[in-house]
Design a protein around this nucleic acid. Structure first.
Lengths: 243, 243
DNA sequence: AGCAGTTCTGCGGGAACCCGCAACATCCCC
DNA sequence: GGGGATGTTGCGGGTTCCCGCAGAACTGCT
């Protein structure tokens, strides 16, 4: 077994190293990296069949690293090992996981025992091991009623970036009304009914536009990290637009 | 010396324990807790002169814990030990630190050597030890030109919570135009000039209201955690308003 | 007192936004 | 081919927002 580990926190990294050494007797090689670029480079120079990834690393998300790895070798088994159950990451993962790929998702707060089980399950037994809590979020996100569709998610991103309706329309190639329509269904999904707050005396307390952002951020549908990445994508689109 | 440590990540916690044991020979007592409530309770039942706090813990921020501790015993020496340099936390700290209090702020990413130095500096030599990076943010926040005034910060909070102008006016006890005026100066401070994006052909690309939120979040002036706390304060104000 | 700096206020107009209504266009499934 | 679900588009009007102008209040400093 050849194992690659990417984790920026040095304590967590050496912890993973210890547990891996403890769990597997047949480790042909183990490589440790502290960021996404390092992981991708390491994977290019030598093939690994098992990978442990921290989501939330400087510069590059674990999700992006996984995407690059799976693009090169779809059979690679990946265990995601993260701090929180941010919906932003979970959505990203379920979007890039290949058809029959083996992967796992476990939280850092879980006891060591569970981590060992996950390592065994994903890397040896080749089964998907998803933490209960994560599973819950994943299911909600996939649910047609409570989760956001791809289009609604796009609208949310544009909204959080601070675009106007007109700009959204231009970016997504729809009419102005089309963009507004997407916003409307987004508001509905996020639960922005008029009677949210029991009818205050000084009129409507919430501005749908900004309230939607507030809800998205507190629920973790989008986080500051994802926002920074989306900002970059917006900028590159902007410069491409002006040929 | 009597030392209290609050840190939710168990790896980091035991690391702190080791380093503290390693650094100080005269430890009369050391208590470890994994959340804010535990720390406050521990501090009530037995006096400590030195405290290490993680910001960003579940339910209660290290900032709130520090506030409670300093309210009870202003001479307590506190070392903040955090992941990132979120302006949200730094602003909170500088707001609650008593006149002549001794404290320090060091990042988890710093090498062990620096942590030891900070422990010595704050707890023994009784000097303030602030990480360079943090110091930079702190200074920018205090600067009249680039940093936000208290009023502008309030406006930002209300904005990010999704309130309407009218609701802000009601909450802050100013006229409608007053609230809008605060927003205007906020926009200006955040750098929302009209020519931000080089004059796109399809009109103004950014909605000031949402763009301001975007900038605040990516810069870390406000984070999801702080937002959730502010949300609670808003709700309690709301229910108080309707007696 | 005088003066600068900051904040609050009303007024008014132009722009942006929210959304109900109604008409299509797809696509899928029975 | 007839529902059904989903997504797009135009129209219209009521609301909210953004902001320039100008005056008033309040601070701290000389």
């Amino acid at each position: 077994m050849r194992l690659l580990i990417a984790e920026d926190d040095k304590l967590h990294r050496s912890f993973l190293e210890d547990v891996a050494n403890d769990t597997f007797a047949d480790l042909a090689e183990m490589t440790l990296t502290s960021d996404g670029e390092g992981a991708i480079e390491a994977f290019k120079s030598a093939q690994y069949d098992c990978v442990i990834l921290d989501l939330q690393m400087p510069k590059m998300t674990g999700v992006e690293v996984a995407k690059s790895i799976w693009a090169r070798a779809p059979a690679t088994k990946i265990l995601f090992w993260s701090n929180y159950t941010e919906e932003a990451y979970i959505r990203g993962i379920t979007k890039i996981v290949p058809a029959a790929a083996v992967y796992g998702y476990i939280l850092k707060s879980a006891p060591e025992e569970q981590l060992k089980l996950a390592l065994q399950g994903v890397f040896v037994a080749e089964q998907c091991v998803i933490d209960r809590e994560v599973r819950g979020v994943q299911q909600r996100a996939g649910n047609r009623l409570s989760g956001l569709s791809e289009l609604e998610y796009e609208a949310l991103v544009d909204l959080c970036l601070g675009l106007t309706d007109k700009a959204m329309a231009a970016r997504r190639n729809v009419s102005l009304r089309g963009a507004q329509s997407r916003l409307q269904s987004l508001y509905q999904k996020l639960g922005l009914e008029k009677g949210d707050i029991p009818s205050s005396d000084w009129g409507p307390s919430f501005n749908s536009r900004t309230r939607a952002i507030s809800i998205a951020m507190t629920r973790g549908i989008l986080n500051a990290d994802a926002l920074r990445r989306e900002e970059e994508m917006l900028m590159s689109w902007l410069s491409a637009k002006s040929h």
